[in-house]
Design a protein around this nucleic acid. Sequence first.
DNA 1: CAAATAACATACAATCTGCATGTAAATACG
DNA 2: CGTATTTACATGCAGATTGTATGTTATTTG
Lengths: 208, 208
Amino acid sequence: MQQESARRSNRDRTEATRADLIAAARRLFTEKSYTETGTPEIVAAAGVTRGALYHHFADKQALFAAVVEQEAAAVAEEIERASPPSLFARDALIAGSDAYLAAMRAPGRTRLLLLDGPAVLGRAAMDEIDNRHGNRSLREGLVAAMRSQSMMRLPVEALTALLAAAFDRAALAIEAGASPAPYREVLIALIDGLSQAPHRGPGAARTR
Amino acid sequence: MQQESARRSNRDRTEATRADLIAAARRLFTEKSYTETGTPEIVAAAGVTRGALYHHFADKQALFAAVVEQEAAAVAEEIERASPPSLFARDALIAGSDAYLAAMRAPGRTRLLLLDGPAVLGRAAMDEIDNRHGNRSLREGLVAAMRSQSMMRLPVEALTALLAAAFDRAALAIEAGASPAPYREVLIALIDGLSQAPHRGPGAARTR
DNA sequence: CAAATAACATACAATCTGCATGTAAATACG
DNA sequence: CGTATTTACATGCAGATTGTATGTTATTTG
């Protein structure tokens, strides 16, 4: 028996402690809310002291940011994993929507990414995170659709943001217990509505 | 001069104190954030003590709810005031969107109604407030459009929620400094995309 | 192997929230 | 009209939380 658990390199120690902290915080932040979760509770769950926390993170908010970052990455990865090789642009978008809604059903994720995240870190910071992980595939899908001329040409940033907002709200509604079907139907209608077509006047006759 | 400020009825006292508290809280909650604003600061600005606050409101969150409620009502009223008598359903929707985006430019409103509100009170409570004030006109506009057959028939609740989410995100982006034009353009495209028309396949040829 | 540094643990100060208790003003009531 | 009761506050207190400062132990560097 050389040593029970000793002789760990500093890099290993840091990595392990940070991971423990983030994991414990993630659990508590998703079970309760950001403000309802105190740092004493977090460090107790992680098996360290508050000293460790404040050594590795500037403050509670920085720990929260790390959790959000990791969770956004997880969502993005789940979506990419579920994303089929390459369909028509429109079908790829819908597949992506479904994957996103499915990924957001992981317990507490909506609160973390859609409620507490924006409130605690600000919309700007969340946009930055989203653009780095999640929204990229959405924007690329939209650009592809426009290039294939199956979707009308629109400002990409704005379109991405607004569609993402609709997805987010759908995820929240579903999490709250709403049936997914109508939301899915509306999302598809919104996407299909953007398919290349000239505008018509308000009193458009029914075409069916 | 009968009395300097005395002999006020209890109803008047309550009304005045509550109003002072809500006004001070509104100012601070919009300047800073909900958590960054402490009750000592609020009561100091309102010229009362914390005893008064906790006499009139169950807790800090209840005061916040009152502020949000009042602010949502103000937004709804601004929209109705700007809403022209009766246009074609599609134009009424766009006028409503513009009015909403204009109303949300009041400083701090986005943080109050779109960031802190959902996080502090929960999405469910915010939906309840929105449905009581703001979203009503949107939903009615959508129903009207569907009835006039100028918009495809879709689940009303879901459509209202998702469009409202897009409006909200646009308001946030504009507040953050983005140019309104592209967001307005996309919102109009989303609305127009729902005009009555049969679905087309993915590879739809351009019809122009 | 000593010096410097990193990774924690512990103790402390400043706040903040909610409640309990106390007091003055208004209202109800006989 | 005078007293009992309720309302509208003010003050003080207890518990908890956050961030920091200080102390200690384990690594790494030279």
